[in-house]
Amino acid sequence: MTKEEEITLRKTACKVRIGVLTATHGAKAGHPGGSLSAADVFTYLYFKELNIDPQNPKWEGRDRFVLSKGHTAPGLYAALAYRGFFPVDDLPTLRHIDSYLQGHPNMDTVPGVDMSTGSLGQGVSCACGMALGLKKQGSAARVYTLLGDGELQEGQVWEALMFAAHYRLDNLCVIIDHNGLQIDGPNEKVMGLGSIPDKLQAFGLNVFQIDGHDFQAMEKAFGAARQVKSKPSAIVLETTKGKGVSYMEGQVGWHGKAPNDEEYTRGMAELSAQLAELEAV
């Protein structure tokens, strides 16, 4: 990846974060913390990795993305909007009555959403079904799914991972947003996860562990994952919850709370400054 391309992705990620703030502020609800920790991977997926066509969101040959941690819909919606699936101006209607931007992703109403999710642990199983179907059809399309770290406490995740390894779904890439925080506190206090990479490896996945805010590292890991044959890949992203907005960073309280007017203004000022800095590079 050239430096220029990296800067472009970082600028886009900044816009996605602005979208997250705009959407959750507009909704007066939603989940900014996990949307911001995953903003970089949303950006990487929708602006670099995925083979998709915003003009034809149901194109059969497209790569699929399943947001298994469906509560971070604001991050997904922002990436989809900036990628051209629907107007960026619609983001503030998130969670409003009669808006198509439901609180959790709805594949029937939002262009570009490949699976309705929200109940943790289910998206990864759905992604397995998609990967199996595409593989059987001889399609070159790949399936990506993003899980939260707390989500790994759902038993179904491990049922799905067994399935993925058993059926050698090498067209499946399981991404974990490891920001270390969940609603009730740090993962290790709520329900210890131990070593996530070790567990994933033991379940038969090819595991990469990288800095989840480093596009160069993402390019290497996602590129290598595409080359892995006969087993699914997992990419564990080490991230900071609330990344990009100083008062949200590392703060568990921002898991599911919207910024008020003052906080929104401050956050937007920070992100605009970051964007301006990148524009000046």
């Binding site: 199983s125 759905c126 397995c128 079904g129 998609m130 179907g133 595409l134 179904q156 399935f163």
Partner: peptide, 23 residues
């Protein structure tokens, strides 16, 4: 025919995923 093992919850969602690909 795909055996999902003793994992009915996973099986239902795998079925959902397969349905999105036209099966």
């Amino acid at each position: 025919h795909f055996d999902c093992g003793i994992a009915e919850s996973d099986m239902m969602c795998v079925a959902a995923g397969l349905a999105t690909t036209g099966y």
